[in-house]
Amino acid sequence: MTIQRFLLGAAAILTALLLQLTVVGRLPLPGAEPDLLLVLVVAFALAEGPLSGMVTGFVAGILADALSVHELGRLALAYALAGYVVGLLQDETARSTLLPFGAVLLGGLTALGAFALEGVLLADQHITVYSVGRAAISSVPYAVVLTPFVVPVVSGLVRRLDIDPLRRL
């Protein structure tokens, strides 16, 4: 991994996290708020494959975990899994315009399911059928809506840097 690629990833994650906390979280949208980090993880997974997706997901998740009140590592696990699953679709989505939307949907549901399952295992009061269902019908569609704005930007940046050693693994 070159230093530029590392800096791109770090800058993208930090920007998304800050935007999420300071702007997106305050938008008066109905339902649960959109999850920028998840869209970013999916975008990296689609641009570079499963390894990039899960590493981005893990790092973004750890940072989001540290800035919240739940246990460390929970979002890291959910995002890493989502990044991996979406990364497996990379080859298929490369030639399609509609498949990225499906990939975000899949990634969103994977992350949500993993996080909820962990919550159930840890007896987290925040995880109820209502709250998970609400996120599934609002936060996940929001992520799909954000896809055309984030995915092309990320893949364009990655291609411009012309560094994809991760893809050749």
């Binding site: 979280g25 999850d35 920028l36 009140v69 739940h70 949500l112 925040h126 996120a135």
Partner: peptide, 8 residues
Amino acid sequence: VGPASSFE
């Protein structure tokens, strides 16, 4: 406002 996707 708290990170999304953790229901907090």
